[in-house]
Design a protein around this nucleic acid. Sequence first.
DNA 1: GTGCTGAGTATAGAAAAGTAAACTCAGATG
DNA 2: CATCTGAGTTTACTTTTCTATACTCAGCAC
Lengths: 157, 157
Amino acid sequence: MDPRLDRDMSNCSIARTLEVVGEKWTILILREVWYGSSRFSDFERVLGCPRNLLAARLRMLVEEGILATETYKEPGSRSRPKYVITPKGMDLVPAVMGLLQWGDRYRADPEGPAVLARHRGCGAHVDAQIRCERGHVVQAEDIESVPGPAFRMRPAE
Amino acid sequence: MDPRLDRDMSNCSIARTLEVVGEKWTILILREVWYGSSRFSDFERVLGCPRNLLAARLRMLVEEGILATETYKEPGSRSRPKYVITPKGMDLVPAVMGLLQWGDRYRADPEGPAVLARHRGCGAHVDAQIRCERGHVVQAEDIESVPGPAFRMRPAE
DNA sequence: GTGCTGAGTATAGAAAAGTAAACTCAGATG
DNA sequence: CATCTGAGTTTACTTTTCTATACTCAGCAC
């Protein structure tokens, strides 16, 4: 049998990323941060998600270093926490752009997308694409997956 | 208040994509298809996921047109179904490459990645990146999200 | 001090999802 | 005709998520 089918998948970067952002609401919370939300009540209002889950997800994202807390102070109110994205969180943008793009293509509203992503300054539409180190645009069919340094076989049972 | 915080998020391409691929196991099943699995028993063995969920996820992916069924026949056995990816499924590759890349960067095995993605032919390493239509590489900070044609405000309560 | 507000925590009940193991089904083999 | 095999289905149980409501806590206004 093809040995690739007996890979040990406990060691997979996709699975590990999903352990962090794969729970319900997590990516939608990040979307809201990108779109401008930062306060507990912002997330609650726009997402309509249960408060206890929202609190749990925010805590996890902060623990993972994807969000960080700062404080803000409305005049006449005390200081309260707000959530801002970190560079580690920004590095999730290509993945989420990929999801956005697929939804725009296959599950769009008849009127079109609700949100357009543009290159600030130049104003041109942006999208996620795959390129190789030499700068070629790579079609998904032309990606070859080969065992890397941490490749392991699945232990026999 | 910033009107963006009152957007109607029932109409979001990210949320809609997650409705299709956001459940547990779904993306890992697609990963296995990219890595060469096609049979029910392949997925079950490599993923270690419960059969009823595997069956439900495969059924859903086929209904959504992300996978398609074909039949295969081992000599001495009857014909059985196998699962192959469709072009619609291939269009999820940029999103999943984004997840892979983030995991490689932040949650890697000390030895390095378990799988390397190369450009078939040229052999160079590939990665997901964001570019604008004019071909500039766009940093996440330089993406501007503006209301699109289907932008809607959240209905007042 | 009393009340108000934003940001939570606590709790309880219902629904959905996940897990494990047993069972079915069809066609090939002996 | 009994057995094996891959691809599921069924069932029972556990965990997670959802919904809703109540409660806390700190500081500002009165």
